[in-house]
Design a protein around this nucleic acid. Structure first.
Lengths: 204, 204, 204, 204
DNA sequence: GATGAATGAGTGTTCATTCAT
DNA sequence: TATGAATGAACACTCATTCAT
């Protein structure tokens, strides 16, 4: 199971770690614009210069975090795509894994949403393309799974492309509702209930 | 049917109109932070002073737009809640109306998403509360419809509160996927397909 | 005895009156910079345009008030200079009259102080000269009275010019202390006590 | 004897020094409102950012200067209060010291007057209170000296509180007349003459 | 590696004044 | 006379980034 993201880079310099941890906290709480490099370096306990020693810009700090989380999410989906066995079972396991990831890395999840709307203004062209490609790959893997399911006769004939948009959209919609109303319902339950309803329909 | 938002205020001063139109365009394209008052007033063809004659801050311009769209959306849902007749039919009509609203006011929809993640940093306490209360009312109306459906025996026993989160979440997830991939799929189809699957499950 | 300054211009348009009254109130409370033309016109219940119908600038409104008060003060001193009789008695009466003026027109007095330090940055060259010339005339009249007293043998040989600075300075110093500590002592007493001490010394 | 105020902080960063010197010059010449941060930083030869590195606002720059001068003045008076020996002699020495301070720090003296009338609009609540407390302490020390003089039988029975207002008022009135007519009379003479007259009267 | 003083373009906002009606 | 919408220069202040040490 993926190690805690911050832990992951334990081997890196303590200061780089501290910056990343501070950035995760602040960006996920306040977003990119409301977090200044002053906030960042004060929370990390380093000087301004140190921030720029490890990262070439505030943008790059943000990108590194966004990239971490999207990478983990993609990994989960690609693993589900590539495992053998019945597609429906794999989808159900994926949903459970995704829910687990969200609970474990809620700060990262929130961070992802903070960057979603404005990402093309926060990130320069180069980074935007890299972020976008994660989403493309994620959708692609989902689409492949639906195709596998149709081919295996597990899933009725649907448009795999549209279904990938729908499945991803549903997950994201529940994410955002949950992040804004964390106390009010269980993400796990909502994901499970919804996906069961979808799967029931998909399999007739 | 609600008039086009910009048209709605046709009677207001031409300059106020121009500011609102420019703000809708720029905020929905670039977001709040990446749009300066300079951008805003240049696009509207007015001076900086004029912006502050009609609005007391950049924030207020934003709020007026966000409020317009949330108001329209709420109206649609409350009307569906209060109409008589079978709940399932009303839900289906609502889904169609919502899709229509999204196509008609795509800029407004995009604007809403631009403000979603950062709204509590963009809007001061007073405005944040008013925005939040729109979302609360929207969810409340949805919850009431589910309850009506259960009471009437149209919908099987589910948690109405959770189901409201799920239905709203699904809609929002499809929205955001569509806004980011407008060319790639039809929002109308996706909403219709998904809601039919959900409704099928909800009614057994 | 001088009529109330605002009453004085009763014959002028009601709006001009209202502007002057509002300006006296606001300038004497908050000073020139902290009072905007918006404040001024709102307090006067007129539009911006009206302000500029009666006065050619915010500065001119201020000047007209400053000028009123300095004119009254000068009148008092010149009358004292030109009256016949013993100088000491005239000086004592003048002190009483001045005290009376201050109590009657405390707002005007406060206004004068609000403009004192910054007057050369508030008023353009032309107006600054006119304000300065009031102070010069006031000092001149005082100097003349001291000379009269020396000539008449009522006052011992002192430098009349220096004594004018001193007498005016004392009055002004007591003014400013009183304006800042109105509750804490009686301006009338302080002026009387101080001037009696000075006069005693001046006459041996 | 207190070192020159600007010299005092010689050890501080050269830029902070330059800002303070420029502020003293400009504020004392033109006042607070007529001096922009642009003026300030250009005169100091630093960038805008540097001003805000050393001071948190334009207001704070002003306060630091005002506070310097009031502190020196207070020190002088409190020393006179606390020295032993005859009160009259101490008062006379104090007057001489004050005159010396005024000649040495004329810019600072002028600055004080520039801030006097509008100080409560220039300074926020916190700073206004600190400025006011200087004046209160100064008056308190003067009052104490008068009381000492009465107790010792050097000064006839007068109201010490009123006499403190009068003595301070006289000094300030002469200050302001001198600042506006520096060429025309000697502050030293005026203060000495006036105080001798007052003292004569106070001691019978 | 690390610091923190320094930069300066850029921000949202204000406000005295003008002028068509 | 009187209005109030419109102007635009000016304002105090911020902040990502640089760089000599």
């Amino acid at each position: 199971m993926a190690k805690d993201k911050v832990e992951k880079s334990r081997e890196k310099a303590a200061n780089e770690q501290a910056i990343k941890a501070a950035a995760l906290k602040l960006f996920s709480e306040k977003g990119f614009y409301a977090t200044s490099t002053r906030d960042l370096t004060e929370a990390a306990g380093v000087s301004k210069g140190t921030l720029y020693w490890y990262y070439k810009s505030k943008e790059e700090v943000a990108f590194s975090l966004v990239s971490d989380m999207l990478g983990d999410f993609l990994e989960l989906i690609e693993r589900a795509r590539d495992e053998g066995g019945p597609v429906i079972a794999r989808l159900e396991r994926l949903v459970a894994d995704v829910a687990e990831l969200y609970y474990r890395e809620t700060d990262y999840l929130r961070l992802l949403w903070k960057f979603r709307a404005d990402r093309s203004f926060i990130f320069s062209k180069e980074y935007t393309e890299r972020v976008t490609s994660y989403y493309v790959k994620i959708r692609g893997a989902l689409e492949a799974m639906v195709e596998q399911g149709i081919a295996a006769g597990e899933i009725r004939e649907v448009d795999p492309r549209l279904m990938a948009f729908i499945l991803l959209g549903i997950t994201e919609g529940l994410e955002v509702e949950w992040l804004e109303n964390e106390e009010e319902f269980s993400m796990r339950d909502a994901l499970e209930v919804t996906m069961r309803m979808m799967v029931t329909s998909l399999t007739r």
